[in-house]
Design a protein around this nucleic acid. Structure first.
Lengths: 94, 94
DNA sequence: GCATTAAGTAATCCATTGGATTACAATTTT
DNA sequence: AAAATTGTAATCCAATGGATTACTTAATGC
């Protein structure tokens, strides 16, 4: 849920860095926060099923859904992939 | 790099749990540890490129490759997906 | 309607990971 | 050989991931 402003500001900063010949691991530019509960409901899964299919612990998922924890780094990346290519992820983790 | 013995032992424990009507979020049964450096080399990427494409920090990746940190939970899941469906992940995170 | 089961909320604990940073070594490129 | 690139290593810190216990809400079966 990054705002358009934040996204542009980040994109601008990265362009500056690239101009400086400094390539950063630009992970935040393409990653969006994910409404995990909505994603899960859209997939028609219970928390247990989601956690099982995507190989995370159910307590972790619950923390995310309640909003008292925020997925970061690889967790956020995984969720973005789940959101965009759920079948591929399930295939890979079956 | 879980051994076959560990995998079977885990599978057995899970079968027992399912028999007890207790479904666990069975994340470890299908996840294998990943030789991250090998995976990266197989994809023909530098650390920076890999970190950028898969939206993790390069310092995280380096810790993994050196073995002083071990990806866990969502991170390990992500790496498993990268190992099995790299194109899908790259597509999703482009 | 009640008991049971399933699904989900919430709080707490702890280990360690993720990310950033600095310094340096090794490798590749010019 | 020098410069640039790539990768190793150590350190710091926040907070996450996972587990656990207790509880509430929703669904199911008799």
């Amino acid at each position: 849920m990054i705002s358009a402003f934040d996204s542009i500001a980040q994109g601008l900063q990265e362009a500056i860095d690239l101009n400086n010949g400094k390539e950063v691991a630009a992970k935040t530019h393409r990653l969006e926060s994910v409404d995990v509960a909505e994603l899960r409901r859209n997939l028609g899964l219970t928390q247990m099923e989601f956690a099982s299919k995507f190989c995370i612990s159910v307590s972790t998922l619950r923390h995310w859904e309640r909003g008292d924890r925020t997925p970061h780094g690889p967790a956020l990346a995984l969720l973005n992939v789940v959101a965009k290519e759920p079948q591929a992820v399930m295939r890979a983790l079956a």
